[in-house]
Design a protein around this nucleic acid. Structure first.
Length: 109
DNA sequence: AGCCTGACTCGGA
DNA sequence: CTCCGAGCCAGGC
């Protein structure tokens, strides 16, 4: 069965994202793995793009390079960075965050 | 059905 | 460290 055919797929992803603490970040691949879909990072990005629930801290999910992924639809990436900076996360000159300092270690918050 | 695209990642050059 | 190509799933045409 494909993920989309399973109505529980997106909720599982959202449940994981919801556990990311304030001031921490996780990668798409990390979320996919924790949700039970190892190797399917794109599925997470897809699920988040379809997200409409404001209670989900989608801004804490970034790519494996430690950067906020750029959107085709303008502004959302800048908004995401602002939200993260408000949580105390710092970006370097290249727009990357330090995983050593901010990466969410599942459960060990 | 085939082809393209996108909020991705990884390994090799 | 950066750049490419391949592998990945879902949606729209």
């Amino acid at each position: 069965m494909t993920r989309a055919q399973n109505p529980d797929t997106y909720p599982r992803i959202y449940r994981v994202v919801r556990r990311i603490p304030r001031g921490r970040v996780a990668t798409y691949g990390q979320v996919a793995r924790l949700a039970g879909f190892p190797g399917h990072a794109r599925l997470v990005g897809y699920a988040l793009s379809a997200l409409d629930d404001p209670s989900i801290p989608w801004q804490r999910v970034i790519n494996a390079q430690g950067q906020v992924s750029e959107r085709s639809f303008g502004g959302a990436d800048e908004f995401q960075r602002e939200l993260l900076e408000d949580e105390g996360i710092e970006f370097d000159i290249r727009g990357r965050v330090s995983f050593a300092r901010y990466r969410w270690k599942r459960g060990v918050a």
